[in-house]
Design a binder for these strands. Structure first.
Length: 575
RNA sequence: ACGAGUGUAGUGUAGUGGUUAUCACCGGGCGUUGCCAACGCCUGAACCCGGGUUCAAAUCCCGGCACUCGUACCA
């Protein structure tokens, strides 16, 4: 089969077998929206369940769930409203489209904050020429909003809202509650799996750029002065790194994460830990690790909130595609929400105890209220307040201005000058956040891509999906060799018992020849097929076929059910 | 967003103004002692949507939608 049509063949099998299909197809379809069919939805469920477990296992990470509809203030604070309302302009001569703020970056200090009218003035005064055709005929600038806008409530009391462009804000909103939940001790994290929305200008590439997509994000809150580091030596797999070309490192490395951290390629210890854990997740669900790499963002590419960024890219039919973004968001979000929300000054902060309590000695000017009271009467309160601002310098008496504008004379005998000691046992600070953001659809796409194999079997084209047990849509298919002589009955008994085991899903297939049924099972990636034949009736044994090499063994039904329960059917083939 | 191309059963396709719309795989049923897409019979299923030209449109024209490619955009 020709290599260049592989993508077409894969896409059509995904549609035919119920993995991935265009949404709303009977109405013509909407680009950028897809459905997971019965087979695809099983895989997605398994991938996200496994993802959840992978992080929650760590013990200091919890799952949360928050709304997709998000009020405007939240996204103003996060910076998305500003960032997503880019002004666009089109060259009327050659139709090239540009972000207007990029065009005027050289002649304006803050191009991103500019108003439409000012932008249009700059564009019409002919100083900006098109990079493509060198003319200067610009269309009026138009805001391009990449968020879906909506409103909450009806009629007069509507509040502007957007469909969330990321799940992360949900975790930030819950920071105070999470901080309490974790007994006010960092580090801790919160994860969420859910939909995100981007009104893409032109979605392309199947499930790579979607308008509604599945995200899975972790916000890991840490003390920037004491960033946690996992044991990187536990995994010595070689991993591909592409550092920022401006960083002074070579173009490419294939080294362990432990080494990458030791040599300073990955600088932040927590980022290094999360890179490793991300890589392990992808490897375990069955992504080909040779086609995984971590690429560091160059400074201009970085998101508005991030201070350091690594993309985890996976290679497939569309080339290298960003599937996970790992960003150090620092204190950007928590700080901004604290400011914008009028929440208390400590609500978005954490407490850091010092190793030793500091004793701070200060000289204070302490008012003698018994003297001040009788002299200043009603103004006494204002005088005492004003004295807090004074510094001791032995120049007495002093002229002091009160809040009400009056100036009063303070003499030495009105105050007591004393040294006081304060114990300082710690301080409030805004935690930093390390965030891995997983594009679930993109990961599933590459899982499908990497699992899809085209072979030739006895001169015929033959395709299979080589999913491992963790992600295969169903665990096994039960096949009665013939649908008679009691074999169908045995098969449906096995099916019922197996399906009653929590977490185990099997199906029975009785239609058409045995070879065709094996082929169908292979095509949706079922790793094991269990065949009931004549002998089964006599000694309660059946055959188990391994998809990847068609090798078969015979075992008792009881033993197979036991291994299905333990997800260990593969072990039956060892010896 | 612009430009070019494409759109026929579930999938892949044939069909350049008049066909009962081609073929294959596919799905369903029945039969067949039949373990890797076997065979036989029966059966199911399509011209992207809307308008126009014409006696007559899958076919020509216009608009929309979707897909592919190029350019642009892409937290």
């Amino acid at each position: 089969m020709s290599e260049e049509k592989r993508l077409d063949r894969l896409t059509s099998i995904l549609k035919r077998r119920g993995f991935i299909l265009p949404s709303f197809e009977i109405y013509g379809g909407i680009s950028g929206l897809i459905d997971y069919g019965p087979v695809g939805a099983r895989i997605k469920r398994k991938v996200t369940d496994f993802w959840l477990d992978h992080w929650i296992n760590q013990g200091d990470i919890v799952e949360i769930d928050s709304p997709t509809i998000t009020p405007e203030q939240v996204l103003i604070a996060s910076g998305h409203v500003g960032e997503f309302n880019d002004l666009m302009t089109v060259c009327m001569n050659c139709n090239s489209t540009y972000r207007a703020d990029h065009l005027i970056a050289n002649i304006h200090d803050e191009p991103e904050t500019i108003e439409i009218s000012e932008m249009n003035e700059i564009l019409t005064n002919k100083s900006i020429i098109c990079l493509n055709c060198h003319e200067s005929k610009w269309s009026p600038a138009k805001p391009m909003n990449l968020m879906f806008k909506t409103s909450i409530g009806a009629m007069k009391n509507q509040r502007v809202a957007y469909m969330r462009p990321e799940t992360a804000q949900g975790m930030f909103m819950l920071f105070p509650s999470l901080y309490r939940h974790f007994r006010q001790k960092l580090p801790f994290g919160a994860i969420q799996i859910g939909k995100g929305y981007r009104n893409e200008i032109s979605p392309r590439q199947g499930m790579i750029r979607l308008r509604e997509f599945n995200m899975a994000e972790l916000e890991y809150f840490i003390d920037p002065k004491n960033p946690p580091l996992e044991d990187l030596s536990s995994n010595n797999s070689l991993i591909n790194f592409i550092p920022d070309p401006e960083s002074g490192f070579d173009l490419e490395y294939n080294i362990t994460l432990e080494k990458a951290f030791a040599m300073g390629l990955v600088k932040h210890p927590t980022v290094a830990s999360i890179l490793l854990k991300t890589w392990e997740f992808l490897a375990e669900i069955g992504i080909d690790t040779k086609r995984i790499r971590f690429r560091q963002h160059i400074s201009t590419e970085m998101a508005h909130y991030a201070s350091d960024c690594w993309d985890c890219e996976i290679f497939g039919e569309y080339g290298w595609i960003e599937c996970v973004g790992i960003a150090n968001r620092t204190c950007h979000d928590l700080e901004s929400h604290e400011k914008n929300s009028n929440s208390g000054s400590k609500l978005m902060k954490a407490w850091r105890s010092f190793d030793e309590t500091l004793v701070e000695k200060r000289i204070v000017i302490s008012p003698k209220t018994s003297v001040i009271g009788p002299i200043f009467k009603q103004e006494s309160g204002a005088v005492i307040e004003a004295l807090k601002e004074l510094e001791d310098d032995d120049n007495w008496p002093k002229k002091v201005e009160l809040d009400n504008g009056n100036t009063v004379n303070i003499t030495r005998d009105m105050v007591e000058i004393k040294e006081i000691e304060t114990n300082i046992s710690g301080e409030w600070f805004t935690p930093h956040v390390i965030e891995p953001a997983f594009g679930i659809d993109r990961i599933i796409w590459h899982l499908l891509d990497h699992s899809y194999e085209e072979l030739v079997k006895e001169g015929e084209d033959y395709t299979m999906m080589k999913f491992n047990d963790k992600v295969s849509p169903i665990d096994a298919i039960i096949l009665p060799l013939f649908e008679k002589d009691g074999m169908d009955k045995i098969a449906s008994e096995i099916t019922n018992i197996a399906n009653s085991i929590p977490g185990v899903r099997v199906e029975m297939d009785t239609s058409k020849s045995i070879g065709r049924r094996y082929a169908r099972a292979d095509e949706i990636g079922v790793p094991w097929t269990i065949t009931v034949d004549h002998i089964s009736k006599e000694d309660k044994t059946v055959t188990v076929r391994r998809r990847d090499d068609q090798f078969q063994i015979r075992a008792s039904i009881e033993e197979i059910l036991h291994h299905l329960n333990n997800k260990s059917i593969g072990k039956m083939f060892l010896e």
